[in-house]
Design a binder for these strands. Sequence first.
DNA 1: AAATGACCCAACCGCGTGTGG
DNA 2: GCCACACGCGGTTGGGTCATT
Length: 274
Amino acid sequence: MRPTRKMTTSCNGKELGELRRGPWTLDEDNLLVHYITCHGEGRWNSLAKSSGLKRTGKSCRLRWLNYLKPDVKHGNLTPQEQLLILELHSKWGNRWSKIAQHLPGRTDNEIKNYWRTKVQKQARHLKIDPSSNRFVEVLRQFWLPRLLEKVEHSSPSSLSTSTSTMEADQKNLIPQPQGKETPTENMNSSSSNCSSDSTGIMLPYLSENSLKNNNYFVENSNFEVMSFNQSNTQDLRSTDMSILDFQLTDVDWMNNDLVGDTFWSMDELWQFRK
DNA sequence: AAATGACCCAACCGCGTGTGG
DNA sequence: GCCACACGCGGTTGGGTCATT
């Protein structure tokens, strides 16, 4: 169990009659984990009473699902995860739990916080309404390609690899490109438009044409296939990112070690365009 | 070193939905 | 159909930490 900074530094929660509120203590966490280990989760109100915790069932459920559950991942979102969130949010909007279902180990709360603190922050800085079509367009044209670039750099040797799973996906799940180029070639050709940021790194971005005329996808050994397919005739300037059809296989990609700060800075992702 | 503001995230709240009696 | 209860979801907030002045 990982103590949070709040758990270790904050005062105890307030007492509301019998019920406690505020940050959970280590003892409370231990109690909840032990109880759920013995009795299983669910029936949260009775669990709260039976366990001896002076918390509401709601509070217990939230603490378990968002923090204590063994498969909950902590730490920064990988570029792949960020990419996925952007994509899924464009499809479903603020359906955080639905989005979280596609990011194993991530909670709706975490994704929601990410969106509010990182994505919407950028919208504010750009003085764009985060719910506006304009912001969606900016995300698609500037942010997504940058994230794709991060993903690509995270496993530079893997772009030429092909797994059986991927091949199956390409055949069965992913509509093949209509043009002559393969998706990988699209990726490369789309990178022909480059800009250089302050660090001198060539930063490819996807031109409107390359996006309009072709599919593109990213893969690596763990993150096997991630595809964004779209109608050839669809104008990218349209406002609905749901035209980017998404498929993902194999969740192991999220267990990689790409969570370093260099993959994380949203500000850095924007700098080359500012 | 102290003050201040911005940022981040865990936790809370209200509401909608599902279910059983 | 109605009611009560439990659960889950999305929005919001409180407070700790970090960065800047």
